[in-house]
């Protein structure tokens, strides 16, 4: 993406996010939009890893969950201010991701998938088991998000916060993608050996991207802990990890806006599919398969290619 179209894309996203609430009739719709923002933020981060660095992670919900539980526990049980808890969570997750990144990212393909899956599952087992701290399977409530005397209340307040944060995340991601680091990243996805030959320290970049995407997930998790009335371990489990990867691939790997579209689409889909009741999983699975068969590169890149072809 060139510099100009990057700003154009960001501007278009900003206008869309600013206009969206006008079109939402009630707080239920705003709630879905907020949840879509949460997923979009994580997916933009995860896409850096999957789409640009070519490294799959089937354990990303673990980082999201760690951030969420760090906030919930520190605020709920130890009375920390939410912002401080959020930063502490991000620091813990960042350090942890850094520590495990090197040995784990040495692995390739399905072995990497297995390793990240394992890490995610271990995190979710700990959260589920240490009920004395985390509330166990029934969950824990972190309470409202407040900074000083300002308290975030209501879906609309949350919408503005998360929309802003989404813009910031996209800005960060597109900067990373277009920077020299980003070019190295893309080289990685193409050919790791090639990148090394021209003097790119692939291991260092992979570690950096892994840490960045984990920290983004953690921050989103911390905020989610305050947004949701009851935080439960399902947010950190294997299914959530799979859901996140699906969103990224569905929208289009190596496309920041693809990650957003994928997250938004798959957040809304189950809400739309409720009319099918018991047939919901059949239709959801069918849509997932169909889209990936006919648009193997994902929604956004496929549609973009279609537009480009039409243009002279």
């Amino acid at each position: 993406m060139s510099g100009l179209s990057r700003w154009a894309g960001l501007g278009a996203l900003a206008i869309f996010l600013a206009a969206l609430p006008q079109a939402l009739p009630n707080n239920y719709y705003v709630d879905v939009a907020v949840l879509a923002c949460f997923n979009a933020i994580i997916c933009v981060g995860l896409n850096l890893l999957i789409g640009y660095a070519g490294q799959i992670s089937l354990g990303h919900a673990g980082f999201f969950g760690l951030g969420a539980y760090a906030s919930a526990v520190l605020v709920n049980s130890y009375g920390w201010p939410p912002l401080l808890a959020l930063l502490a969570g991000a620091a813990i997750v960042g350090l942890m991701a850094f520590a495990i990144a090197r040995p784990v990212l040495k692995l390739k393909g399905h072995y990497l998938a297995m390793a990240t899956l394992g890490i995610g599952i271990i995190i979710s087992i700990v959260i589920n088991t240490e009920a004395g701290i985390t509330g166990g399977p029934d969950g824990i409530a972190a309470g409202p998000f407040s900074i000083g005397s300002f308290k975030l209340a209501g879906e609309r307040d949350w919408y503005w916060l998360m929309a802003g944060l989404l813009l910031a995340t996209v800005w960060l991601a597109t900067n990373l993608v277009d920077s020299p680091v980003g070019r190295a990243l893309r080289a990685l996805h193409g050919s790791e050996v090639g990148a090394e030959v021209v003097g790119v320290d692939t291991a260092r970049y992979k570690v950096m991207v892994f840490v960045v995407s984990a920290v983004i997930a953690s921050v989103a998790g911390s905020l989610f802990a305050h947004y949701t009335p009851q935080l439960t371990p399902t947010k950190a489990d294997f299914f959530k990890s799979i859901e996140l990867v699906t969103m990224v691939v569905f929208g289009g790997m190596a496309s920041t806006f693809g990650a957003i579209v994928g997250a938004a689409f798959l957040t809304m889909l189950p809400q739309v599919l409720t009319v099918f009741e018991d047939y919901e999983p059949v239709i959801l699975g069918g849509i997932m398969m169909g889209t990936m068969i006919f648009m193997p590169k994902g929604l956004v890149p496929t549609i973009a290619a279609l537009f480009n072809r039409r243009r002279p």
Binding site: G109, V249, G285, M288, M292
Partner: peptide, 20 residues
Amino acid sequence: KASVTTLIIITIGASIFLRG
């Protein structure tokens, strides 16, 4: 001809479909 990741998502979709 799709990537490994895309194939993973297709088979995950298939598992949801078959379970349903």
